[in-house]
Design a protein around this nucleic acid. Structure first.
Lengths: 210, 210, 210, 210
DNA sequence: AATGAATGAGCGTTCATTCAT
DNA sequence: AATGAATGAACGCTCATTCAT
């Protein structure tokens, strides 16, 4: 009864707490430089306890990434069913992602990290990557919107929608990365993050119009 | 005299040999997974000697990246003085970079790596980053070309040239990263690298036109 | 009453179940490589429950050994009251032990283990050793038989019976150990276990004759 | 020249020092309970240095055992060429081994340990065992002496010499084990080690006479 | 009585860096 | 200048034991 449920809930909370600690550590020091000790200390748990919830550091990395992707999806989900046309939807989605990036910077870094560079240096099988990372990747939604845009004759049809969508997504991630990871450059160039984002959208939307 | 010069030359050769060894090791195993032993063995020097030429592993990483950037610059340098218009120059530069990426994949990874994600996870001071990495970054040339394009009224002037240039460069790196690091996806989507690159150029050039 | 007795009986059964699980685990993986988790899982009990019945892993090891010794005693007990002379009894006892070793190899290993080498590497007080291990050791019976043999003038009396008995017992254990733990050598030497055992008996009986 | 030689000698001395420390630790606490930290501390070296000389803990175990066997061989070697008959030689060898056991108790324990119980729980291939442990095992010499005894018609020929030799050797080890590891029992039985040894020799020599 | 979550000391091994030669 | 032996702080992970429920 209630007691069972409470226990289960506490277990989930603890798991969540570990994931949150791992997020912070992974994205302040990088995955390889993070230690299970760091995470345990931040989670206010013993190192041994971590292994009660996650079978390895790699497993924890995966959990961190998956959670971030699900969170981002929950934020962008509503856009799918909106009455907007494809170009407006892409813009909405971009802005939603940026808002997400402001609200949950660690999670955004996590997504970039896992969709990004280090992927092939990781000891994940291709199956695991697809299952865990890409099954729920936001890029899927981008593909759908681009396909809608081609049907609406708003988006050029001379390039396959999947290519356009992946290109857009990668470009978007790169801009977020730029803004997030190199604030010093923005200052140097006397630019605000939002102006960079809007310029980016302006450029790419312009680029894909039919 | 001659003896002095020979000594100096030999010193440079040794330094170069170490950098070459480090390149190979870093980009076959990843930076964190590379050991100074690996590098020393490949350089046919003792581990202690490495520290005569580079004060730390991080310092060696920097040297590797800098060399790669200089090499890329040497490849793109000619474009600056060509008779082409800005849009043609951007395309030329993009294609030159891709050719560079094919000819020197390790060096290209190095550039992406150092201009990319991990940068702030690294124990470099902001000064060092600017000095070593950005002083010679290819993005400087992109800025010049975009400025030329604005003068030629080929490129939109409603967004500052530096923003356009950096956006282009980051987008370009993200596409190279995508093609290089995730070949499995290209296969899945039944796409060739060159078609992805050309689509990318098509989109972004279209996007920046005035 | 009945309820009390049933509870007591169930408690004993649980204890026995734990010992059985421990036997299996200890003798398939070795004591040090066995974990309390292994044992708990096999006993279908929680790890914490193990500590209700045994105060430590070492305590459990002792219980396992003691049980094995009692079992061996039960097998050899009948020999004491037989009508045979001492030499015949020794042979009978040796053969009974070998049969025991075939029927209960794990238990035999346990006895060898605990009477053997590792003993002093174990955190047992001398008192505990005597109490638990030697109080019921089969060597006691060997002493009695040798004393009978001396009375019967079949066994030499120039060496104290206790010495002869312990020597015989240790030699016997060493042979069982040899046969049990190094089957590869028997194969190499093209020998069957039983021929080794019979040779051994032949030699030692011959050696102790008066 | 001299400098090279000195370095080499110091290296050997360090290796030897590590082996000596390992011997002490292994045989006071048992192999599994011994830690590389223990050994490093006793050797007055850092733990890392241990791995400069031995690639793993297991490798160190092997070195300890091999050294002990070689040392024992060096002590018994002279017996082979003596003018004694086989029975006298066996006695000489037994006494030499006992003297060895007194002078080098750790090494003797090492031999017993490695020829003894734990052998098959060890992650050594059969090849390694033969190569490292048995290639030089003293049992080989026992075989030769027994064969001589059969030729001299002093030792019974109804049991194959190899069986007799291995049986003798195992019995001998078991007695040494008894005396070495269980001194409390000797006290309890009011026996001196030497009387136990002599009784043992008396019994087994008597047993193998033709 | 029974659980199982939590602990934390400890393990074998690695490797960037130092330093005597 | 060059070496390579030595260091020691980490690392990911394990597991006997405890204790609140």
């Amino acid at each position: 009864m209630g007691i069972q449920e409470r226990k289960e809930r506490e277990k989930q909370q603890r798991k969540e707490k570990i994931i949150q600690a791992a997020e912070k550590v992974f994205f302040s020091k990088g995955f390889d430089r993070s230690t299970m000790d760091d995470i345990a200390e931040l989670a206010e748990l013993s190192k041994g306890t971590l292994y009660l919830y996650f079978k390895s550091k790699e497993d924890l990395r995966l959990a961190v990434a998956h959670k971030a992707i699900l969170l981002l999806n929950s934020v962008t989900e509503g856009i799918k069913t909106m009455k907007e046309n494809a170009l407006e939807k892409l813009l909405s989605m971009g802005r939603a992602c940026i808002e997400f990036s402001n609200n949950y910077p660690n999670q955004m870094k996590s997504i970039m990290f896992l969709e990004g560079f280090e992927l092939l240096q990781v000891s994940l099988s291709a199956r695991e990557i697809k299952e865990v990372i890409y099954r729920d990747s936001p890029v899927g939604m981008v593909v759908q919107i681009v396909e809608q845009g081609v049907r609406e004759q708003l988006i050029r049809d001379d390039i396959p929608p999947t290519v356009i969508a992946h290109t857009l997504w990668m470009q978007f991630l790169s801009i977020v990365q730029f803004v997030t990871m190199k604030p010093a450059f923005l200052e140097m160039l006397d630019l605000s993050p939002s102006s960079v984002y809007e310029s980016h959208f302006e450029l790419v939307i312009n680029g894909i119009k039919s």
